[in-house]
């Protein structure tokens, strides 16, 4: 960790189970300020479980979750208010509500109306297609537009760190490129920290500063993005390249 900045997001010894079946075994990870960190792993490795536990959607059996030196609240609505915002897997747009209502919900906890208006302008600037469709029902947007809406909605809460669960899921490569560029720009321009979970390992490793490899609920590897891209174990198992 770089000096003088203090801790940012820190997960240590996290155990999560679903009705007796362990999904995460003593998982530890950290994200520093302004950092993009990726977690890659196969289907069922526990990536979504990890993000849900951090965001307060799931209650861990044991382990520590801390943000800026104090422990994270155990309810998701409080975690958002601390600046830890999850963009869930599968986007979870409120299908029958309009684009604008979805965005307003992102800022639900923010009492300052002018700040909300400014955040809305910023999101519309970032994703002009959402501005053009603000009255449309969220469920009628295309997959790519829904992912933009999900990210825009999360940005409305004024996050300090964004937890992204498979933003590339089911999207055309062109849209994925655009989304990854946007994520990089958010990080670059406003220093927003990002914890990204992806099956699209190549793109995630190229984008991130550091990455972890999660296997069957346990952390196997950790390193810089480019190091893992070159690692033979990663190349064989996750990048589809023969060793």
């Amino acid at each position: 960790m770089s000096e003088g900045e203090g801790e940012f997001l820190k997960v240590s010894g996290l155990d999560v189970a679903y009705g007796g079946i362990r999904a995460l075994h003593s998982v530890s990870l950290r994200v520093d300020r302004r950092e993009i960190v990726a977690v890659i792993g196969a289907n069922g490795a526990g990536k979504s479980t990890l993000l849900k536990a951090i965001a307060g959607v799931l209650r861990p059996e044991s382990g520590e979750l801390s943000f800026e030196g104090s422990s994270l609240p155990r309810q998701s609505y409080q975690a958002v208010r601390r600046g830890v915002t999850l963009v869930p897997e599968g986007r979870r747009i409120f299908a029958s509500l309009s684009v604008q209502e979805n965005l307003a919900l992102g800022a639900y906890a923010c009492p300052d109306r002018s700040a909300v208006r400014a955040a809305l302008e910023r999101v519309y600037g970032l994703f002009p297609v959402l501005a053009a469709r603000k009255g449309q029902q969220g469920g009628t947007l295309s997959g790519g537009e829904q992912q933009m809406l999900a990210i825009g909605r999360a940005l409305m809460s004024g996050p300090r760190i964004l937890l992204l669960d498979e933003p590339s899921l089911g999207l055309a490569p062109l849209i994925v490129d655009l989304l990854f560029d946007t994520i990089a720009a958010l990080n670059d321009e406003s220093g927003l920290a990002i914890l990204l979970v992806e099956q699209n390992a190549t793109m995630a490793l190229e984008l991130c500063d550091r990455a972890y490899v999660l296997e069957s609920g346990a952390m196997r590897l950790e390193g810089k993005g480019e190091e893992l891209l070159a690692d033979p174990r990663v190349r064989e198992s996750y990048l589809g390249v023969g060793a």
Partner: peptide, 17 residues
Amino acid sequence: LGIRASAIDTVTAGLMG
């Protein structure tokens, strides 16, 4: 709006704060 969101999807409503 919060009530309607909660009616559609409680978990995601929680993520909205």
